[in-house]
Structures are given as structure tokens and as C-alpha cells.
């Protein structure tokens, strides 16, 4: 299995990654090497193995429903590029 240029372009767009045309061939080659590794793993017969959703065989611990956080927006917003009226400002987005 290997990826085409179109597929890599599409994945890059979905991931908001800017792949320059001159990088394209190298990125495709590296991604295909990763897929090659997956191919190797697929050679192992796993029919008797139950699929896992997580590498650790333990289950989720739950948190009591309590409010434990205080308002720290001033601190958090001190690293934001733009803030107004306590809102984070971002380039305009309209659906």
C-alpha cells in the first residue's frame, strides 16, 4: 500500500499543514515508509486477538462532579495574540 500525491495533499489540507511543492516527494516517501512498517506488522496473524482501544489494559477512572477550577482567564490570555472584552480574537470565521 502506498499513498498518491493527491492523497497526501488532501491529508495535509485536512491537518492544515502547508507542504511546499518541492517537499512533496520527500513527504510522500517518508509517509510510505511508515505505511511499509504497518504492512510488516499486518503480516502477524492477529485473528485470535481482541482489538484494544488503548495500549494500557486498564479502565477509565472517574472524577467526582465538583467545580475545582477558578477563573484564570487573565493569566491564560496573557499569552494570547489578541484579546478584547475577555474574548480571544481570531481571524474572522463565518459559516
Amino acid at each position: 500500500m502506498s499513498l498518491s500525491k493527491d492523497e497526501v495533499d488532501r491529508i495535509a489540507r485536512l491537518a492544515r499543514l502547508a507542504v511546499r511543492p518541492e517537499e512533496s516527494a520527500a513527504v510522500i516517501e517518508r509517509l510510505n515508509r511508515v505505511l511499509g512498517m504497518i504492512e510488516t506488522m499486518r503480516a502477524v496473524d492477529t485473528r485470535q486477538v481482541e482489538p484494544m482501544a488503548h495500549a494500557l489494559d486498564v479502565v477509565q477512572r472517574l472524577r467526582a462532579d465538583e467545580v475545582t477550577e477558578v477563573d484564570q482567564h487573565v493569566l491564560f490570555q496573557s499569552i494570547a495574540p489578541a484579546v478584547e472584552r475577555d474574548l480571544y480574537l481570531v481571524p474572522k470565521v463565518i459559516e
Partner: peptide, 13 residues
């Protein structure tokens, strides 16, 4: 997202 006028930006709460 609040799309009122923030000098052409959107506000995020």
C-alpha cells in the same frame, strides 16, 4: 464564536 465587529476579527468565548 461571536462574529460581531471586532475590527474584522471574531471573538471566542
Amino acid at each position: 464564536s461571536l462574529h460581531e465587529d471586532f475590527h474584522g476579527m471574531s471573538g471566542i468565548d
